[in-house]
């Protein structure tokens, strides 16, 4: 398509000034607007990077532009806090939850997309309705429930990884299942019908035919669940009270909660470390993101 350029008229010769006015009217103002937006978008990120390498490491000495560079904040963070444990915990929850959620959701989406059974309509509407009731609203009940469960089964009580993971998995079937079901629907039915004619079981159709064709949506759901889990605070704060069992998010929260000024450099390093996994998944999955988002999943 040719550029719809309004200036392609019978103009014999443009002066430099006139050309600039045309450019400003067509593209110049766009660059000006983008400059403002980019400034707004980037300055907190710039600030956190600058604070992370700030040798003094306090909030009051951190500038927008780095005044010096040192790794002392990172060293403090590794030495004075159980940073490695926190990070491992965060990644454990994010990766396990994302993997299992994708698996459970894909199984359910396959049933909803390919099979007709009693209760299918109710189930699909139910999933939409449940989405309106985020799990954390029932936090009081979940807390009371696990006070009792923890007495019977210490292995899945408070301060354990498995207890919180179970709660997270309670939210596995959600709007994500809808997202997947929609994508499964776009795979032509003839494919699995012909495979079944050839003697494949429903399990073989699912594993060998469906899953390879719907990888993009699996990736998107994994990405969204990963990000949501790594940023989850409410349930984690109720479940993980012992410092050794906490996630990086909880640890950072306490770090700046007790010593707002002096720990800021350490916090900044931790904030960057917490963002690295999300930045990485964004980078690898960027081509899927914009469409996955328009399909209706939300991240804050």
């Amino acid at each position: 398509m040719s550029t719809p350029d309004v200036a392609v008229g019978p103009v014999y010769r443009r002066t430099a000034g006139k050309r600039f006015t045309l450019w400003a009217g067509r593209l110049g103002w766009r660059h000006a607007v983008m400059l403002v937006v980019v400034t707004f978008a980037v300055f907190p990120v710039l600030f956190v990077v600058s604070a992370a390498i700030n040798p003094v490491g306090t909030l009051s000495s951190s500038q927008l532009w780095p005044t010096g560079a040192s790794l002392s904040n990172a060293q403090d963070l590794f030495r004075n806090t159980p940073f490695g444990t926190w990070y491992a915990n965060s990644l454990f929850f994010a990766i396990t939850n994302a993997t299992v959620t994708v698996l459970l959701s894909a199984l359910a989406a396959y049933a909803f997309s390919r099979m007709r059974f009693k209760g299918r309509r109710v189930g699909l509407i139910g999933l939409l309705v449940i989405q309106m009731f985020p799990q954390f609203l029932a936090i009081v009940a979940i807390y009371l429930m696990f006070s009792n469960i923890g007495e019977l089964y210490p292995a899945i009580g408070f301060d354990t990884r498995w207890g919180l993971l179970l709660v997270y998995l309670g939210g596995a079937l959600s709007i994500n299942t809808w997202l997947m079901k929609g994508f499964f629907d776009t795979v032509p039915k003839e494919l699995d019908e012909s495979a079944q004619m050839d003697g494949a079981t429903h399990a073989q159709v699912f594993v060998r035919i469906m899953l390879p064709l719907v990888t993009p949506v699996l990736a998107i759901v994994a990405l969204l669940v990963f990000i949501n889990t790594i940023n989850e605070f409410l349930l984690a704060s109720v479940f993980l009270r012992d410092s050794g069992s906490q996630t990086l998010g909880l640890g950072l929260y306490q770090l700046v909660d007790s010593q707002r000024n002096t720990n800021f450099g350490m916090f900044a390093v931790g904030a960057i470390m917490l963002s690295l996994p999300t930045l990485a998944v964004f980078w690898f999955l960027q081509r899927y993101i914009s469409e996955g988002l328009t399909s209706g999943a939300v991240k804050g």
Binding site: M34, V37, V38, A41, V42, P44, V45, F47, V48, T58, L59, S60, S62, L64, I230, N231, E232, F233, G249, L252, Y253, V256, R260, N261, F264, F267, A268, G270, A271, L274, S275, T278, L279, F282, K299, G300
Partner: peptide
């Protein structure tokens, strides 16, 4: 890429960062 950057950062850490930027005594 630059405009989408805030979305790719960890929101939990960024909320805490904003709180500290708004700090009355030492904030940015």
């Amino acid at each position: 890429i630059l405009v989408v950057l805030p979305y790719a950062m960890s929101s939990l850490a960024m909320y805490l960062l904003w709180r500290d930027m708004f700090n009355a005594d030492f904030g940015l």
